[in-house]
Every structure is written in C-alpha cells, then in structure tokens.
Design a protein around this nucleic acid. Sequence first.
DNA 1: GTAGGGTTAG
Length: 665
Amino acid sequence: MNTINICLCNLPSRSQNFNSQHLVRDNYRGNIEVLCKEGRLKEALAVLHQMHHQCITVDSETYCFLLRGCAKSETLPQGKHLHSHIIKHGFEHDIFVGNNLVSYYAKCGTMVNACKVFDRIPQRNTVSWTAIITGFTRNGNAREALKLFDKMQAEGVKPNQFTLATIVKACGSAEALEQGKGVHNYIIENGFELDAVVRSSLLHMYVKCGRIEDAHNMFDKMSERNVIAWNAMIAGHAQHGDLKEALRLFHEMPAPDVVSWTSIIAGYAQNCYGEEALNFFNQMRKTNLKPDGFIMASVFSVCANLAAMELGKQFHAYAIGSGFELDVVVGSSLVGMYAKSGNLEDACQVFDNMSRRNVVSWNSIIIGCAQHGQGKKALQLFEKMVQDGMKANAVSFVGVLSACSHAGLVDEGCHYFDSMACNHGIMPDISHYTCMIDLLGRAGCLDEAEKLINEMLVEPDVSIWGALLGACRIHGNMELAIYAAEHLLDMEVNDAGIYVLLANIYAAAGRWEDVAKVRKLMKDRGVKKPPACSWIEVKDKIHAFVVGEDSHPQREEIYKLLGSLSRQMKAAGYVPDKNFALHDVEDEQKEFSLSHHSEKLAIAFGILNTIPGTTIRVVKNLRVCGDCHTAIKFISDIVKRKIVVRDANRFHHFEGGQCSCGDYW
DNA sequence: GTAGGGTTAG
C-alpha cells in the first residue's frame, strides 16, 4: 500500500477548491498509466478501486491503460474481473475499450473470449481487425488469421502497416509462400514497402518459406538494416544449418543483441554442436547483455543433450538468481535437462512445480519416464494429462509407445496404439509404427511384428527394418534377420549403426565372411562408423573417452583399475561375452578390446575421481554393448556404487549387481 | 495494434 500512497502524493488536497473532479480524475488516470507501463498492475487496479470508492467516473482511456497492463502481464483472472467492471459501467461497446479487450484476451491465449468481444464491437475498424488477426497468428492459428484477412478486405476495411506486418508473419508461419507474395505485391502497390517493420516481416516470411536466397536479396538491397533484419537473416541461415553464414553475419552486424546471440546459440545447439553453443553462451555472459528465458531454454536443451547436469544446475540457479520467471518453455527444457542427465527425481520435481504446462512439458516428463524404463509411471502421467484436458499430440504417443516398449508392456502398447486414431484423432506415422515393431520385436512377438510391417499403410523405412533387425538380434532369429537385412542393404543406408548391428549378428553366428562383406559395403558406400564415445561430467567438466583411449593423463590408473575389476568380476562369476567384439581375432585379444570399451573407461574414471558412494552418470553415443552391460552390473556390486548409463536409446540404472532395464533393452 | 530468438521424439 505504500506505493499507492506514493503515487497519489501529487493529488490536490480535497480542501483545494478548484475544479477538483476533473483534476483528480486526470491525476488518477495519469497514475494508472504510469503504473501499467511499469508493469505494476496490482497497484494500478488498487487505484481503480479507489476511484470507484470515491465515486470518480472512470473514462475509456483509463480502462484501455489497464487492459494493456493486464495484457502485458498475461494475467487472466484480473483481466476478466476488469472485463466485468467494463460491462457494468457500459463501456463494452466503446471501440477503444473493445479493441483493447480483444488484444488482451488474444495475449492471454483465450481466442474464444477474444472472438466473443470482437463479434460484439459495433463498428469494427482496422485496429479491431488487426487485433484479432494478430491474436490468431500469435496463438499458432495462422490459417484462421489469413481467412480473417480476406474477410476484412471483403468488408471494405483497409489494412495499414500494422495489419500487413502481422499478415506477412502469418504467411510465414503457415508457410503460405504464394499468399505471402500476393501480400508483398499489395505492399509495394500501396507504398508500404519502406516501413521497417513490414520489411523485416517480409524477410522473415521468405526465410520461413525456405526462400533464404530471396530473403538475402531483399536484405542486400536494404539501405538501412535494423537489428531485426540482421537477426532474421542470422536465424534463417542458422535454422537451415548454414552456421558459417550465420556466424559471418553475426560478426558483421553492428551491435548484436540477446536475440542475435540466441539465434547463434540455438543454431549451434540444433546442429549438434552443443559445446560450441555453450562457448557462445559464456562469451555472451561477458557482455552487458542479460540472458532471458529464450536463451536459457536453448542452453538447458544443450545441457540435456550433453547430460551436463552440474553445469545445467548452475545455469538453473543462475536463471533463478537473474530474477526471471521460469515460463512454460524454460520449465519444459529444464525437465528435459534433468531427465536426460539421469536424474528423474529432479525432473519430476521441476515438472510438479511448474505453474503452467503445455503439451511439450507433459511430453518431456513422459519421455523422461520412458527413457528411464518407468513405463507404468509414464502411462499414469499420460492419463493425467488427458484428464487435465491437455490434447495429446503425435510426440506424446512416441513417448507412450516407447515407454511400453522399454518396460515390456505389450498389451498396454497395443491398446494405446489402437486408441491413437480412435480416441485422440491422431493417425499413426512411421515413428509410431517403429515403436510398435520395437515393442513387439523385443517381447519376442516377431511374427506379429512382421505382420504389422506388411499391414502398414506407409512404406517401411530404415528405422522399421532396423527395429526388426534389433529384435532378431535379441531373439537369435537368423532367418528373419537376413530378411530385414536384405531390405536394409537395398536402401543405401548411411546410418552406420545398422551395418554394425548386421555385422554383429553375423559375428554372433560366427559368419566372419559375411561380416567382411558388410564391412566392404560400408567402405564402398562411404559409411563411417562413428567412434564409440562415452563421457562423464566430473566437477563441472565433461571428460570424453573413446575405445582404447591411450592419451588420457590418468591412463595408467584407469587401466590398472579395470584390470583389478576384471579379476574381481571373474572371481564373482563373470564370463566375457566375446560375441560383442567385432573382430575376427584371437579370443584373448577380443577380451582386451572388450575390457576397454569407452563406457568402461568413463566409469573407471568416475570411480577414481568421485567420492565413494557417489552415483556415477555416464553417457554413451551408441547403444551400450551386451558385454559391458553384464560387466557394469558386476562393477556396481563390487564398488558399491549406483551407476547410471544413458545410451543412444535409454537409461540403465545399475545397482547391487542388477540393472533397472531387467536386461530388457 | 506491428517485426527477430526458445522447449518434446526419431
């Protein structure tokens, strides 16, 4: 209440007897304007109540200030309350108030309410139309925005530069290039092409429609380029994977702002250059620019992919310390960060504490549970999401089906697969079929898996045959494996994982000639097996290991520890499974290369460099090998540590000689 | 009333 006293301090005292009503009202209005502009909405609303209390007439301009204040902070309950005030005092049909109500509801994402108000405005003008069109564009319904634009013109209302900028944006979002070009012509014919905002929107539209060259031509011809135009170009190139050009523009532009940095960081992140992305972020922190939610969401996503939890935690603390609210996007990225770093508990905690959740937030936690083998929990969350009225999307079902697959929940998986189209109106795409082949195949229902492939309405692709091949590997079905392999080899696959899987199947059967054939094929086709790599975060630093690592400073200690562990493991009954060593060499040598797989090196490093009892979290870029899986179970028991391994597919929590996947992966 | 950057899977 102190603050209100402060803002009212310049009011004339009641004893001053000159034209006080008007002056008092003007002062109140002025105070409300300032408070709303400063985002101090609660205080502004308190002033409004004070006005009512003192029976001072509120004018439409004051309501407009308040509505814009509500829109700014996207506070739905307060705005609704204000709306009822407005109706009560007969201002709903005022065009200024009506227009502001439309933008307020649009900003809060409730387009139903926005439309209701819009329909009731008696003489809609350009601003009214622009407000509703902007609402649909912002809320992801560009098609509806484009329809309304046509309707607006049909009713004889002329667009201005604001309408045009928005409608160009809508064309970009809907990737409606032809319509966008049409609007571009209109812009030229009506003399709007010099408007900076309209031009930036056009750049963005061409970028979004994949016409980066057209955008670049426009950009090159611009005599004055503002920061928005530069950023649109940087983001355009970055999103199309041309990081070199994005970076060139970034260095060339006069004064990069937070958005420029975000475009670069997100670009590197999305193209799998996580460490570089983090380097850029650290560089930015040395400038005066303040990070915001946008940039943090990208940073958390990078940490998730690197499983850099300690670093991510620090950034989390930094984000809280910087004082900005964790919005729905940042929250979802944090959930992913904790889950992908192997810490499902913290992921759940962040999720539970989110004040708002969207479908991506739910998907993040469902997928998190799925990857940790917590199938039942994933399904419970999915049910809760549906109960809460959130509409599932295709990604939600990838989460649900992979949860069933990792947990061996065959009946449940089939049930959800059937319910996709029936109850949720989502047609299964190839990724859902892949989950199903995986689910059936792992569970040993190879015939059903094959049947499903034959029944599919879509053409089976590499991932489908790969899933079947993987299942054949688990269940030792050589005949079906070869059938799948034939399809795969016809497909000019460039995923080395498939060739490795195939070679492993042949190796397991001792068919070394076929192994050699697969290898030759890989060589002829120029497919390179990415080196197996595992990494571990110790004291905020990421340490990466590759097979047969021999340059590490702690090399001697690591190998010594592995030797000693190997002896203890054998004493406890471990037998090396040489089927997983992809070399046709003497047994002894095979055993040597097995004992130096990257995941073992990283684990040994972790044991040496962390306090006894600490959980060891390791990430591997490929699937964990079967022999290592067995060995790690023994190791977890010998060193009395929890060991969490994230491989290319899922998490394995090793403890006391057991793995959470129940050897089912 | 308007422009540029963010989160989920495979």
